[in-house]
Each structure stands twice: as structure tokens, then as C-alpha cells.
């Protein structure tokens, strides 16, 4: 039996403000970005991944999941490989705090692993690195 030596693969979306990209960068894990513009080549997931995304809106929850992420997950191949979701947001949005994470967790039946505010504190980075490490090891061993 092969031991799980690979680290978590991340797929993320970040708008031009780049907060989620910055958080992902700090995690230091292999990551691919969902393209911002429809004119770009769509991303095709090849391996299981954890999705990291910001929450949009605040307008009664409508449009919380960025359109680019919807387009990505509407692809069955991409949807089948999602294993968990990490959401970025701001508690000042009240009920809308990290709502995109809840929506995707429910839709795709995967756990909402963690929520960060803006681009995360150093403590968040550490918690997510450690959490993903455990989660991915568990995933790799149970899926074999």
C-alpha cells in the first residue's frame, strides 16, 4: 500500500482585489486559480482538491457564490473531485458571513472546513495548514 505523501491540492477563486489569492499564497500549497474572465481557458480539475473562495454580496444572500465558481462547478468532472471548501468573508456581513462556503458545502455534500476573514491572520494560516494536513491524510487513506 502506498502511503499518502502528497499534500493537499487547492483550487481557488479570487477577484481583482486578490484577498483570497493572498491567503492561498500564504498557505504555500500547490494551487490553481479559476480564471477571472470568460474569455480565458476554463480550468479543468484533474485531481481531488479543496476549493477556496470568497463570498460575494450581502444582498440577502443572492449572488454569494462568484459566477466564475458556479461555472467551474457546473462541470460534472470538476464537481466530482471537490473534497472540501474553505470560505473567506467578513463577520460584518452578518448572516452573509462566508455564505458561499455554506452553499457549496450543501450543494456538493462536502465539509465546510474553515472560514477566514479578509485574507486571514497568521493564526488562520497555521490552523488551515495543520487542518488540511490531517484532512488530506485521512482522505488519502480512506479513499484507497
Amino acid at each position: 500500500m502506498q502511503l499518502a505523501t502528497t499534500s493537499t491540492h487547492l483550487i481557488y477563486f479570487s477577484s481583482v482585489s486578490g484577498n483570497t489569492a493572498r491567503f492561498v499564497e500564504k498557505l504555500g500549497l500547490p494551487a490553481e486559480r479559476i480564471p477571472l474572465f470568460p474569455s480565458e481557458e476554463p480550468l479543468q480539475a484533474r485531481d481531488p482538491y479543496v476549493l477556496v473562495l470568497p463570498t460575494y454580496g450581502g444582498g440577502e444572500g443572492r449572488g454569494a457564490v462568484p459566477k466564475q465558481v458556479i461555472r467551474f462547478l457546473n462541470d460534472e468532472g470538476n464537481r466530482n473531485l471537490i473534497r472540501g471548501v474553505i470560505a473567506a468573508g467578513n463577520t460584518n456581513f452578518g448572516e452573509g458571513y462566508c455564505l458561499a462556503g455554506d452553499i457549496i458545502a450543501a450543494k456538493c455534500q462536502v465539509p465546510l472546513l474553515y472560514r477566514v476573514e479578509v485574507f486571514g491572520t497568521p493564526d488562520d494560516v497555521q490552523a488551515v495548514q495543520e487542518g488540511l494536513d490531517r484532512f488530506w491524510t485521512q482522505q488519502s487513506t480512506t479513499s484507497r
Partner: peptide, 9 residues
């Protein structure tokens, strides 16, 4: 829903 118990990690 800001409480930590909401998160898996």
C-alpha cells in the same frame, strides 16, 4: 453563524 463550531477544522 460566526461561532467556531461551524467549521470542520
Amino acid at each position: 453563524n460566526a461561532d467556531e463550531n461551524h467549521d470542520f477544522f
